[in-house]
Design a protein around this nucleic acid. Structure first.
Length: 458
RNA sequence: GUCCCGUUCGUCUAGUCAGGUCUAGGACACUGGAUUUUCAUUCCAGCGACAGGGGUUCGAAUCCCCUACGGGAUGCCA
């Protein structure tokens, strides 16, 4: 156990943004790497935006990604409460310290933090008016990611609104002090705010924590950072797509960090061991949905069939394809065939439907393609004949039977396989062909071929 | 406007701190080929980058300066 204490401090907005998730992840990784403590603190000072559902989205997203917290909501801890909405007394007490020291003052009903330095008035281009400015000494931070960064604040800023509610910069610093935070790992969008925060730490006579500002995640196309409206920006989307959380987490780790060798698929324990602050990139990373999908596919393929079955069963039951008593060994045989073909679990119900149900739809395009060449009825009648002679309907026998038809007609097996596949599964894309027929069984295959002929070949 | 941060294949990145082993490596994507007498998988190959300029040096992707471009901040949002 080390004395490292890091925190993830989201404000509940009703969605879990991929950038926030990555910030949470990096904090969690650092805590686990150092044997420190990972704290979850809810920054809900903006009351209107906070609802219980919003909180649940956050908690569920964190848990889904495997980011368990050591202190915070639900688990408690000695530095609580962990909701800023419940820390009003703490903030009142701490703002008094500044007031007493003359480092804060009231104006327009709000409380302002007072910078130290020579004062003058100057026109502000951004605010488009004259403002009182301060020649404050520059703040220097030794950022673990970006190195030495120097910046000077030049205006007093509000720490308590006229409404009586404290402002982000203030509560952030007070909480980091009272919760004993040693390392602040957050998005680069806060880098410019850090001088405000360091000014506050100093005004409280507290040594600031170590800072590490991580790069942002940019939208896939177009300018700017990922916004909640962009495709793939929300963790909920991956949950809905039934992506594997390990895959999402692995991809997120690699957005702004790398193990410094050619490895990409890494177990979480390997990542925990290798992860460190100075190894984080300085450059913003652009989100890539295809690469994210690639990780999911890799993880899915590597998954033990028992796990695939365990994950897939509820989905298949929900889709009405199987009952809960479906034989496990048959299910696993089917899933094994599907596992190597699908890219994500959410494709499974559609992909495997024909294994369980006769009501699969025949895809128009596939049908036309397959009916266009040769003489489909003749081919299928040959197959029916060949199959009816089979004593054992296993993959090898089926292959031999088709081969026999192909040899006899001189057409090649290519004239039979796509046609048969459409007849028994409705599509020209699917699992490995011969094993697939074997699982379906002779009776079902024959019935489906006959039905196909009467319904689709005039 | 001002301030802060950044810039290697289309994208994620290795290499930069400790200059030569870099005719710049890997992955995703894309293109082509082989395998599968189907679709997919797999395998192989190809395409493809040090933002530009100046300097330091025997030697620069790597160090310094300038420019350009990108991102962020500049709220009584967080």
């Amino acid at each position: 156990m080390s004395d490292v204490r890091v925190r993830f401090a989201p404000s509940p907005t009703g969605f879990f943004h991929i950038g926030s998730a990555r910030t949470a992840l990096f904090n969690w990784l650092y805590a686990r790497h150092t044997g420190g403590t990972f704290i979850l603190r809810i920054e809900d000072t903006d009351k209107e935006r906070n609802t219980d559902e919003a909180l649940q989205v956050l908690f569920e997203g964190m848990k889904w990604l495997g980011l368990n917290w050591d202190e915070g909501p639900e688990v408690g801890g000695s530095a609580g409460p962990y909701f800023q909405s419940e820390r009003t007394e703490v903030y009142r007490e701490w703002v008094q310290k500044l007031l007493a020291k003359g480092r804060a003052y009231e104006k327009d009903g709000a409380i302002w933090f007072k910078l130290e330095g020579e004062r003058y008035t100057a026109y502000d281009e951004y605010l488009k008016k004259d403002m009182e400015k301060v020649k404050a000494a520059p703040v220097v931070i030794d950022d673990q990611v970006r190195g030495r960064v120097e910046r000077a604040e030049d205006r007093d800023f509000v720490i308590f609104r006229a409404s009586g509610e404290p402002v982000f910069h203030f509560v952030n610093v007070v909480d980091d002090i009272t919760m004993g935070i040693t390392h602040v790992i957050r998005g680069e969008d806060h880098l410019s705010n850090t001088s405000k925060h360091v000014e506050l730490f100093r005004a409280f006579d507290v040594e600031p924590p170590v800072f590490a500002h991580i790069p942002l995640i940019l939208k896939e196309t177009g300018p700017g950072k990922m916004s909640k409206r962009d495709q793939g920006a929300l963790i909920e989307e991956y949950q809905n797509l039934q992506y594997l959380p390990e895959a999402v987490r692995n991809y997120l780790c690699l957005l702004g960090w790398s193990p410094k060798d050619d490895r990409e698929i890494l177990s979480i324990s390997e990542i925990i061991e290798l992860f460190d602050l100075p190894a984080i990139n300085k450059t913003n990373a652009r989100f890539d949905a295809k690469k994210m999908g690639h990780f999911n596919t890799e993880y899915l393929r590597a998954m033990p069939i028992e796990t695939v079955s365990w994950l897939a069963t509820p989905k298949l039951v929900e889709a009405g394809l199987i009952g809960s008593e479906f034989p496990e060994d048959t299910l696993q045989t089917i899933l094994k065939l599907c596992q190597e073909k699908i890219r994500s679990l959410h494709e499974l119900s559609d992909f495997a439907r024909f294994f369980f149900k006769d009501d699969y739809t025949i895809i128009e395009k596939a049908l036309n393609k397959v009916l266009k060449k040769g003489d489909p009825s003749t081919r299928l009648n040959e197959v029916i004949q060949a199959f009816s002679d089979l004593a054992h309907f296993d993959a090898e026998s089926i292959e031999a039977a088709i081969q026999k038809c192909a040899d006899a007609s001189g057409n090649g097996a290519g004239a039979y396989m796509p046609l048969l596949r459409v007849a028994v599964s409705g599509t020209n894309v699917g699992p490995s062909f011969y094993p697939m027929l074997a699982i379906l069984g002779k009776e079902a295959v024959m019935t489906r071929i006959r039905r196909f002929m009467t319904e689709n070949i005039s």
